[in-house]
Computed example of a mutant assay.
Amino acid sequence: MEIGSIVLVLSVVYYGAEGSHIVGGRDAVPHSRPYVASLQQRGRHGCGGLLVKEDFVLTAAHCQVTVPFTVVLGGDLLAAKEPTKQTFTTVRSIPHPNYDGHANDIMLLRLNAKANLTAAVQLIPLQRGRLRAGGNCITAGWGDIGDNNTLANRLQEVNVTILSQRRCRKTWGAVPITRSMVCGTGVDNFQGFCSGDSGGPLVCDGAAAGVVSFSGRRCGDPRTPDVYTRISSFTDWIVNVINNEPLAV
């Protein structure tokens, strides 16, 4: 979906293929990212997410769909029946009230039950401090592995270098880059997230610093750096929802 000159990395579903990599990335060590969730419909991966409480997953607001997601935790191979996997359905989707199709692209999903925390399923803390330009982070997901409409089967990850707001705004030009966004690029050209990685985590120093939001026409293109929703801008909202959202009836 295009908005002006940007192309959002939406929850487009494609068939997977083993042995390939997220754009410019690598296979994650199995279950080394125990907080990553696969949001699925009809058994097919659509978006990523991250487990922030036993019964809450954080993702991107643009991933919102009209029917409940199936949420798979503890997975590495999407197609395999791994004993580590735990499967849930979503009972509520709670997008940020100020999401406008571009800014404030963040959403909480309430699960129908609490996850059992194991070695393969863990919460991730929220990053609260400032991100330093030039800092090294990681993003992970099961999205498009070659910018050619092919999803990964095994969880992929890629290194991310944080950009300054000034540089990101200059590079994106007329596309608004707000203070509640953070930008990053791969170490090399054409490394980064792609379709199907939406809602997945940007992890810096072991904490969740961002949620995959949008990129340019070509995945990993340094001329249009990857843009994440900055989690620290929404900590109060996240904590308030998690602490006050009523139980499902």
Results as ranks from 00 to 15, higher is better:
I238E: 01
R230N: 07
S232K: 10
L202P: 05
P176Q: 04
V182E: 02
S213L: 05
L247K: 13
D226P: 08
G220C: 07
G192D: 05
P222Y: 00
P201S: 03
C204L: 06
R230F: 06
V239N: 09
G216E: 08
W237P: 12
V175W: 01
F190W: 08
A209R: 03
G184D: 08
T235H: 03
C194G: 08
P246L: 13
D221C: 07
V211E: 11
L202V: 04
G200P: 13
G186N: 06
C219I: 06
E245M: 13
C183R: 03
I177D: 02
G206W: 01
R179S: 10
G186F: 00
D226A: 15
A207S: 10
Y228W: 13
N240E: 10
F234P: 11
C194T: 05
N240D: 14
S213Y: 00
S198T: 06
E245W: 07
T224D: 12
D188T: 14
V212Y: 01
D205S: 15
N243Q: 04
S215G: 15
S213H: 04
D188E: 15
D197M: 00
C183G: 06
I242S: 08
T224Y: 13
S198K: 05
P201A: 03
V212K: 05
T185P: 03
V212A: 06
S213G: 11
N189C: 10
G184M: 10
S213P: 13
P176L: 04
A208F: 00
C183V: 07
T185L: 15
R223K: 09
G184T: 03
V239I: 07
T229Q: 13
C183K: 00
G186K: 04
D236E: 14
R217P: 01
V227L: 15
R218A: 05
Q191D: 11
S213T: 03
Q191S: 09
N244D: 10
D197Q: 01
L247H: 12
P225W: 12
P222K: 04
M181W: 02
A207F: 01
V239K: 08
G192L: 00
G199T: 07
G184L: 10
